[in-house]
Design a protein around this nucleic acid. Structure first.
Lengths: 340, 340
DNA sequence: TTGTAAGCGTTATCAC
DNA sequence: GTGATAACGCTTACAA
């Protein structure tokens, strides 16, 4: 690879000063049409491409956002990314994406990379970083946390009320007549706690006993948890899975076990990703407004970058129940019902 | 945000020269333990973070790879990314991800961004860029094209033989007894041509008439194409969809039409993403070794960066048929069969 | 082993 | 309008 041409080369070719070329590249109005044309022609001829590293270093600005995504495999995140990219494009911000891969160590390293690259803002989607790390990041670049299932003291937050979302799931199942409902817990996922807590509280409010089985946040994580739940003396009539991926895994394994959904057992997911909408899954689930969350994250960040805002931004959107075909009334009375 | 500390600040704090700090930061062995400790302590105290922009500018190296992904929504791509990230991490390369969003204009801008950032190599996954653009990119930074469904004259390529993959699908369906097989075409997708061509050739080799319906590469693109195909006087007994996403959309719409899969109609996808493996879809599909393709892309790039290699690398892996539950023998003889 | 000083390719502040 | 020239924060010979 030959050394790329520099501004100096273009200046020489066009017979002007380097500063003039710089002005043209940033299309400053205060350049004569004649010179501008000459510079552009020279740049074209040399296939000149501004060195962003040098530009950012000199200008002390990067106009770049770092977006850390918890898990690129989960469609939930790519849909939030859509919103982020739309809004960033409108604001003239470059978006850089790094994948946390559901690994806190990797998340830390990603943030470090972003900060070393001097991004002007950070968006953390579904990140597992603790408050200390968030505050540390925020002190270096304005940070907004998206979809963490709670608000954070010191950082702008865009999230949904996930405990309420979990309650929507439970209420729906209870209203159908279910009394024995197992929750497949999200384990290390940042949203595991609020969803589990919401589930537990909602169960109790109905006078029902919560039953939590440890699963995870991917489709492979449902298997063992289902086995455990179904092996109980009192198998559940419904399952509230941590998210759509886990719910899909649950559907698979219930199928292995010859259990029909929803006839033998009902299943609810969370996130309302496109997977839930597939007719063959037809997953009843809890919607989060993903694209909107992404857009809000970036617009919040932009307000901060533009110097506005003092108070923390804590947006908490409402989750919504989306009923599809994976839930129905239990086919026969559950044990707890028959004894009550 | 306070101005971040510079190397100069650290040097002053530690009572050494800036160059010494630089050596420590890149942990050079030729620094005395005493000084090293002092520098690290000062850096720690000031929460110093090297400015990568400045480092890259000065060293004329970035150790960074730009990865352009055609569509972050398609799980196929995130799985290729897994391979890329694994291999890059091993090689000490930073990976930057940009989303092409299935839009050639956006792809061009992404490449431009990467080149301006002076990435040392480019990986284009499922990119729609034409050869001229590829050659142009390759002249600036070694470029490897992944999963484009063909080899490219002037650029390293890691792909599978997609015409052969399509033939596997057709052969499978024909061996089950299907004779009327419609292909849902990938439209603008880079792989649309090889898969369609492979389909057409395979059909002809069996003495069957190819039937192509224009669809696309997302789950929403199947609807109209299915309607068109099923409205024909001679509706097909099997569908070979462009990819798993389209196949999933096809399953949905066939469901709308009250057609049972595979009893009334068989469906084959392409890519073997996790979606195909969901029991409720149980999609027969064509596998591409995604992670391996990602790893190969990066290892190829690294060889180039290390100065090795003259000849183009053209890796063409074999696609594989994965039979699941969405295909079976047609339930009743098709028209063409009954007349033969 | 450590320090000095000359870049790296820009932007930005001044003069002219 | 245009052109010098000093930053920007770092790396890297080359000296010491």
């Amino acid at each position: 690879m030959a050394r790329p041409p520099t501004m100096e080369d273009v200046a020489r070719e066009a017979g002007v000063s380097r500063a003039l070329v710089s002005l043209v590249m940033r299309d400053s109005p205060q350049v004569s049409d004649k010179r501008r044309a000459a510079v552009l022609k020279a740049a074209e001829k040399l296939a000149y491409r501004p060195n962003i590293l040098a530009r950012n270093l000199a200008s002390q600005r990067t106009r770049t956002l770092g977006v850390l995504v918890n898990d690129l495999h989960n469609p939930f995140f790519s849909e939030v990314l859509d919103g982020i990219e739309e809004e960033a494009e409108g604001g003239g911000l470059q978006v850089l994406i790094l994948n946390g891969g559901r690994d806190p160590g990797r998340e830390r390293r990603a943030i470090e990379s972003f900060l070393q690259l001097r991004v002007e803002g950070l968006v953390l989607i579904g990140s597992r970083l603790d408050d200390a790390a968030l505050i540390e990041a925020h002190s270096q670049a304005p940070t907004v946390v998206v979809a963490s299932g709670r608000t954070h003291a010191a950082v702008d937050t865009i999230t949904t009320h996930e405990a309420r979302g979990a309650a929507l799931a439970v209420d729906h199942l209870v209203s159908l007549g279910h009394r024995s409902i197992v929750h497949l817990d999200g384990a290390q996922n940042i949203s595991a706690t609020p969803r589990r807590d919401g589930y537990v509280a909602a169960m109790r409010s109905h006078g029902l006993e919560p039953r939590v089985a440890l699963a995870g946040d991917t489709d492979g994580d449902a298997h063992a948890a289902i086995d455990e739940a179904m092996a109980a003396s009192d198998p559940p009539s419904a399952i509230f899975a941590f998210n759509d991926l886990v719910a899909a895994g649950a559907l698979d394994h219930l199928d292995d076990l010859q259990l029909r959904v929803p006839d033998d057992i009902s299943v609810v997911g969370y996130d309302n990703t496109f997977i839930a909408g597939l007719h063959h899954l037809a997953l009843t689930t809890i919607n989060q407004p993903r694209v909107r969350m992404g857009r809000l994250a970036v617009s919040t960040l932009m307000e901060r970058l533009n110097g506005g805002r003092g108070a923390q931004v804590q947006v908490e959107l409402d989750p919504e129940l989306v009923v599809r075909g994976s839930t129905s009334a239990p086919s026969f009375p559950t044990q707890s019902e028959s004894t009550s």
